[in-house]
C-alpha cells in the first residue's frame, strides 16, 4: 500500500542544511499496523508528515496505492488526503470552538456528503468510541481520554485507508492510553492500515512490527510476533 524509495527531506537555511530524512525505504502492506520509534529529532514525525501528505520529500519517491505522490502540489495533496488518510495527534488537536459532533463531522464536510448521511456516520462512530453521550459537549468539557476518543472518531469517520497516529497516548494516563491502543487495534483488525509514531514500548507492542529510526534513517525493524 505504501512504498518509499530513498526518501529524503532536507531543511535548508542560509547557513545549514539538515537532513531530517536520509534514504528511507519503507514498505507497509494494506492492513498492517506499524510502529515507528526512535529518539527525538530522529525524523519520525517528518516521515509521518510525508506519508500523511502534509509535506513533500525533497528526495526519493513515495508511492501510495501504486500512485507516485512524492511531487504533488499542496492542492492535490489536500485532495488526495480527503477520505484516504486519517490523523490522530498527541495533543488531540480538536477545535475548541466546535462541539464533539462538529469536530467529528469536519472531514465529511470536505467530502460533500449529505447532511443526513453525515449525521448517521458521526453518531455511529461516536457510539462506537463510547462517547455518544457527549455529542453536544465542547472539547474543554471532556477528559483527556475522552478527547482522544473524539479525535480517533474524527480520524476514522471518513473510513480512510490509512490512519496515522503521532504519539496518540502521549498525553494520557496509562488506563486511558491502553484504552486508546485497544481501539486502534480493533480498527486495525477491521482492516485499517495504521502507522503510529511512539516513544512507548508498550504501545509499540500493539503493532505488527516496529521500525526504529536514528538520524533520519531506519536502523532496524523488528516484528512483534
Amino acid at each position: 500500500m505504501i512504498k518509499t524509495e530513498k526518501l529524503g527531506k532536507v531543511f535548508r537555511t542560509e547557513e545549514v542544511e539538515t537532513y531530517a530524512l536520509n534514504g528511507v525505504d519503507l514498505h507497509v502492506k494494506k492492513g498492517e499496523f506499524v510502529a515507528v520509534m526512535g529518539p527525538s529529532g530522529c525524523g519520525k514525525s517528518t516521515l509521518l508528515n510525508i506519508i500523511g501528505l502534509l509535506d513533500n520529500p525533497t528526495e526519493g519517491d513515495y508511492i501510495f496505492n501504486k500512485t507516485n505522490v512524492s511531487k504533488l502540489k499542496e492542492k492535490n495533496r489536500t485532495n488526495f488526503r480527503k477520505g484516504n488518510i486519517g490523523f490522530i495527534f498527541q495533543s488531540f488537536n480538536l477545535i475548541d470552538e466546535l462541539s464533539v459532533f462538529d469536530n467529528v463531522e469536519l472531514p465529511l464536510l470536505y467530502l460533500k456528503m449529505k447532511a443526513s448521511e453525515r449525521r448517521e456516520r458521526v453518531e455511529a462512530v461516536l457510539k462506537r468510541m463510547k462517547i455518544g453521550h457527549r455529542i453536544k459537549h465542547f472539547p474543554q468539557q471532556l477528559s483527556g481520554g475522552q478527547q482522544q476518543r473524539v479525535a480517533i472518531a474524527r480520524a476514522v469517520v471518513a473510513n480512510p485507508k490509512l490512519i496515522l497516529a503521532d504519539e496518540p497516548t502521549g498525553n494520557l494516563d496509562s488506563k486511558n492510553g491502553i484504552e486508546v491502543m485497544n481501539l486502534l487495534s480493533e480498527l486495525n483488525q477491521e482492516g485499517a492500515t495504521i502507522i503510529m509514531v511512539t516513544h512507548s514500548k508498550r504501545d509499540a507492542g500493539f503493532a505488527h512490527r516496529t521500525i526504529n529510526m536514528l538520524d533520519g534513517k531506519i536502523i532496524f525493524e523488528n516484528g512483534n510476533g
Binding site: G83, E97, L109, Y110, L111
Partner: peptide, 14 residues
C-alpha cells in the same frame, strides 16, 4: 493557527 491547520489537514483548500 491550530484550527486552520486541522481544517487543512482534513481537506480544507487554500
Amino acid at each position: 493557527f491550530k484550527e486552520i491547520g486541522i481544517k487543512k489537514i482534513f481537506g480544507e483548500s487554500k
